[in-house]
Simulated scan of single mutants.
Amino acid sequence: MNVALVGVVVICVLILGWIAVKRLRAKREVESKSIESEELYKLLGTKRVLLYDVRQPLDFLAYPEIIPGAMRIAPKDIAEQTASFSRDQISVIYCTGADDETSLMVLGKARALNFTRVKMLKGGLASWKAKGYPVEAYKESFQLDTAT
């Protein structure tokens, strides 16, 4: 009986350890693929960088503003709209705020599409605005994704 209990405890510890290591690796990868607002601001002033606003339509509706020079791409349209883009161009994606699942999902899609130099703006649009960097009103029309 005690041997079985010890076995179960060991298996649980191993599973929890595996999960913790996997999360730590994911966090490190996100950090290595992130860029701070200050670094992006400097980069925009000195080099050619492609900047993509990949917020979900409802987030975009709540905050209809964009970083100057950014291109709006709905997350569901990433593959279609980026088919002709250079895969080795410095690119930065951003969403609404910190720890945004949309940015992580889009980052994964971009890497699956062989974009080699794509980064995620740490803290998203909220961080950019908190630093006092410019935004402009977005005046293009866009569709909300609705189930039919």
Rank of each mutant, 00 (worst) to 15 (best):
79 A>D: 14
1 M>I: 08
93 I>F: 07
44 L>W: 02
40 L>C: 02
49 V>F: 05
123 G>I: 04
34 S>Q: 01
119 K>S: 02
131 K>N: 08
66 I>V: 11
120 M>T: 09
19 I>W: 13
121 L>D: 04
117 R>S: 13
100 D>V: 10
68 P>V: 07
97 G>C: 08
139 K>R: 08
40 L>S: 03
133 Y>A: 02
115 F>T: 14
122 K>F: 02
98 A>N: 11
68 P>G: 07
35 I>Y: 05
9 V>S: 12
4 A>S: 07
97 G>P: 02
70 A>T: 05
107 L>R: 06
77 D>R: 14
85 F>S: 01
126 A>N: 11
105 M>P: 00
12 C>Y: 08
28 R>F: 12
135 V>D: 04
138 Y>R: 01
17 G>T: 14
71 M>S: 09
113 L>A: 01
146 T>Y: 13
92 V>I: 12
50 L>N: 13
31 E>T: 10
91 S>E: 08
35 I>S: 09
2 N>I: 12
28 R>C: 10
67 I>H: 00
116 T>Y: 01
36 E>N: 05
59 D>V: 05
99 D>T: 06
12 C>W: 09
23 R>D: 13
132 G>K: 09
107 L>C: 04
145 D>V: 13
25 R>E: 09
26 A>N: 08
78 I>V: 15
56 Q>I: 03
98 A>S: 13
87 R>G: 02
90 I>G: 02
34 S>P: 00
129 K>S: 09
88 D>I: 12
15 I>W: 10
124 G>P: 06
140 E>L: 11
71 M>Y: 03
89 Q>I: 15
124 G>N: 07
111 R>Y: 04
127 S>F: 00
77 D>G: 06
119 K>N: 00
111 R>T: 10
76 K>P: 00
3 V>H: 06
139 K>N: 09
8 V>R: 07
12 C>T: 12
7 G>N: 13
117 R>K: 14
3 V>Y: 08
81 Q>E: 15
125 L>Y: 03
31 E>K: 13
143 Q>Y: 09
64 P>M: 05
123 G>H: 03
45 G>K: 14
106 V>G: 08
52 Y>W: 13
46 T>M: 08
13 V>P: 03
31 E>C: 06
9 V>T: 14
132 G>W: 13
48 R>L: 04
53 D>H: 02
105 M>A: 15
74 A>M: 12
147 A>D: 15
87 R>W: 03
90 I>L: 14
75 P>A: 07
88 D>K: 11
109 K>F: 00
75 P>E: 09
49 V>I: 11
100 D>F: 07
141 S>R: 11
15 I>P: 00
49 V>Q: 03
69 G>H: 05
132 G>A: 10
27 K>Q: 08
25 R>I: 11
9 V>D: 04
